[in-house]
Design a protein around this nucleic acid. Structure first.
Lengths: 196, 196
DNA sequence: ACCTGAACACCGTTCAAGT
DNA sequence: ACCTGAACACCGTTCAAGT
């Protein structure tokens, strides 16, 4: 199975190499769900060799999620708040669509752990504050925007997997955009009113 | 493994029995993901016996999704539209939380196939029309509401799985409610303006 | 038609080695 | 410390029987 290396030889694995390999596998074979064994095959190592660089499959997923979020574009600081938030969410939506296999995992972690996700969150809170949405309402608006964006990405990717899709990708993207506008209108209309 | 039955004896399985058994397993062991082998164990049959009553695992899931949606409460017909829509989505949210293992599967199918989901959809379209939201805008609003509700349910259930949850279930439910209001405000404010 | 036994091609993960 | 071999306890699904 792995004829190139004998018992003690190094394969040159690193956490970065493993992550890049997984990213490779995910982008070249977007349909199938990522498995550690397939990743090991892709890297030319035994399945359990991965455990020297990751603690777990969920640890790998975690790393991939944040790695992907690095591609999200942030608008200039003086962009009108609602437009800026729409731009960030739309960019996130596009990034998620590029990695369908990761989408189901995003909702679970709310995009909260990694540095890229954190940076994105604080950036969004900044724009929300500029729209006079602060405190509890800002935290709630943040979660609502994230849930909506990831949820719609999940809908879009699963719809893309079906052969006779009722809606095209363009229609779904337009639907996402309109819903995002409704949401931002609702959020900014009620600014400052944190409720319980 | 199955000492009670010899080679040709019937186990009394039916599609309904299989579905109920799966529902049983899902509600008594909400955490673990449903497997056909565990379901067969629960029913006291061999794993492949299920294939006489379901075509597939996804077929089983499909059946479960619609089966669960039967519990969603519909408000009286003359309820103010926005309140009615909020009530339907909140009831759906609660039903989804009762079956966490199903939540990841809901977004994929948009709740569109089964009779219960269809009925719910037409009911929602009725209330949307009463709020002067029709045509393309109504379809888009419908998808947005569904995506938001399932998405937030996914966030809530995954957050419940974590030991040290940053937010309580009550806080998340309040968050869901507020976001739903923002969304409905946005939807009804732009009534009639179908866009592309 | 309904069910079992056995098998196939997979999983994630662990444990005991080897260098 | 890094990797392999082998194994464990699982999966979904198929195929050939038996009644």
């Amino acid at each position: 199975m792995h004829p190139h290396r004998s018992r003690g030889e190094r394969a040159g694995l690193t956490r970065a190499v493993v992550l890049d390999g997984a990213f490779d596998l995910l982008t070249t074979h977007p349909v199938e769900t990522l498995s550690l064994r397939a990743l090991a095959r892709h890297l030319g190592v035994a399945p359990n060799a991965l455990y020297s660089h990751i603690t777990d499959k969920s640890d790998l997923i975690e790393g991939l999620l944040d790695h992907a979020l690095a591609a999200v574009q942030s608008p200039p600081a003086r962009t009108p708040p609602a437009d800026a938030l729409a731009a960030i969410m739309t960019s996130t939506y596009d990034v998620l669509l590029a990695h369908p296999a990761l989408v189901p995992h995003y909702l679970a972690r709310q995009g909260s752990r990694g540095p890229n996700a954190t940076h994105l969150g604080t950036s969004m809170l900044g724009f929300l504050a500029r729209a006079d949405v602060r405190g509890d309402a800002a935290g709630e608006a943040l979660r609502v925007l994230i849930v909506y964006t990831i949820g719609f990405a999940a809908l879009t990717t699963s719809s893309a997997a079906e052969p006779r899709a009722p809606l095209s990708q363009e229609e779904l993207r337009g639907n996402f955009h309109n819903g995002l506008r409704w949401l931002l209108d609702g959020i900014t209309a009620h600014r400052g009113s944190a409720s319980t």
